[in-house]
Design a protein around this nucleic acid. Structure first.
Lengths: 151, 151
DNA sequence: CAAAATGTTACACTAACTATAACAATTAGA
DNA sequence: TCTAATTGTTATAGTTAGTGTAACATTTTG
């Protein structure tokens, strides 16, 4: 498990979008700003879009726009958006199907045990958000609550 | 990283050795008891031997023997013995060498951030030991402090 | 209708993991 | 001293996951 480069690319992209807010940025812009491939970034960003962390518009003048307050975007959310595996997981699916009592007992226990460690990781990741990351890096967020329609 | 099947194999082997103590068990015995390959188990066990968690003797009547109190063998130790990667790591080694200020800043920060999560994982793993695992599984340890030479 | 952009799928390449085999080194015991 | 049993180590092939990239359908602006 492990945390991958996908996570750091996603975080970098979110920081960039917070800085550039409210100007939509294309996958090309984002990719260039962080030294990644535009197609790969679209893959990552499309997953963040599905979680409503980022908004996207297609077509000319389209692009990606931050869709949540950076202070409310937690590392945990980002991780879960782009990774289907748990950070600390055990794959028991293809452990041989003999189903001996002992093996089954062990495997079930390990699943619990790993889940327990996983809870700790998630707890830790919930305390970190895009806003705190940007502060640590002396980046200035330009995000503000989008205009609501006034009467 | 991720936690692998190696960890569960290692734990199973240690529990088995605790049950069988003080009888040395061969890699073949151990492998059969947990449904794994003997050669693979030797690879894992040899790493535990290097950490003095397990003792080994070669030759006829040789085998592996638990070398520490199961209550003092922590999940953390076992993990570090068999995995060279951290549980929650970021591989920044081959991030492109352009060395732009921003990229370097980000990468250094992520390394810190991930190390921080790693500390939590390790802390959690230190609270789990072979003895507690065996209790949870209703396995009976037969380990006792080896005879010291009496005068 | 054309250009620009996302969203998605596909594909090759690499890295890591798993399972297995092979063999050198070591040891006990006949 | 020889043989069998065992660890320790290395090598190899197969599988899985991750990365980088390209291709193309879809959508949208003007």
């Amino acid at each position: 498990m492990s945390a991958s480069i996908k996570l750091s690319h996603s975080i970098k992209a979110l920081c960039y979008l917070a800085e550039c807010y409210p100007e939509p940025k294309t996958s090309k812009d984002i990719a260039e700003s962080i030294g990644a491939n535009a197609s790969k970034m679209r893959q990552l960003l499309s997953m963040l879009v599905k979680q409503n962390i980022v908004a996207s518009t297609q077509g000319v003048k389209g692009g990606f726009l931050l869709n949540q307050d950076p202070a409310k975007i937690h590392l945990q959310e980002v991780y879960c958006s782009i990774e289907d595996r748990k950070a600390f997981h055990l794959d028991v699916s293809h452990i041989n199907g003999e189903s001996k009592d002992r093996t089954v007992l062990f495997n079930n226990y390990f699943l619990e045990l790993f889940a327990d460690v996983q809870v700790e990781i998630e707890h830790k990741m919930k305390n970190i958000n895009i806003s705190s990351i940007m502060r640590n890096l002396n980046l200035k967020s330009n995000y503000s609550v989008p205009n609501t329609k006034t009467i």
